[in-house]
Amino acid sequence: MNIFRLAGDIAHLLAVIILLLKIWKSRSCAGISGRSQLLFAIVYTTRYLDLLTNFVSIYNSVMKVVFIAASYATLYLMYMKFKATYDHNHDTFRIEFLLIPVTALALLVNHEFSVLEILWTFSIYLESVAILPQLFMVSKTGEAESITSHYLFALGSYRALYLLNWIYRYYFEGFFDPIAVVAGVVQTVLYCDFFYLYITKVLKGKKLSLPA
């Protein structure tokens, strides 16, 4: 555990808490992509199956349980409790265009051809693109509430901080996982446009709106 990894995990935790609180406090999931949230639930479920087979640390296990529970809680709020507020007209990204290539890639490029390993690889690849329906929704409506922007910033920062963690681990621990690193770079690059808008607009007190 190094400072980048810890900061990344805290950013990740903060993101899921911001999202749950936003929906709970406003009693609305307007502006949030249910499709991205569904993909994240699939990501956590397939990645953290090793909770049952491999113990790393209390910290590791608790965080895994929290991420799985939070993702299902978010889905429950969006698709059940506050279903009426779900903006499905703007949430139209075709997730099969992500799921099919990601499945194929996980079967082709993995560390080991075993069920758990392929599911882990699948989750890493899927996570890297899971935010696309949400970014697509923001670009379609042309704006995002500030709280949604904070959520996206925290979620994007998490993998960017993991990149620093991987650089640190490469130099100081000789650790290098090309699958995680390449997917992490892709994931972070997808947020770059958003990061730019967040820093130039939201942090200056303006609403995140895209030029028409």
Binding site: D9, D50, V56, F67, E112, Y162, R169, F175, F176, A180
Partner: peptide, 10 residues
Amino acid sequence: YGNEHEHDEL
């Protein structure tokens, strides 16, 4: 190659 199969990260 390090311990890539351990997946100690989140």
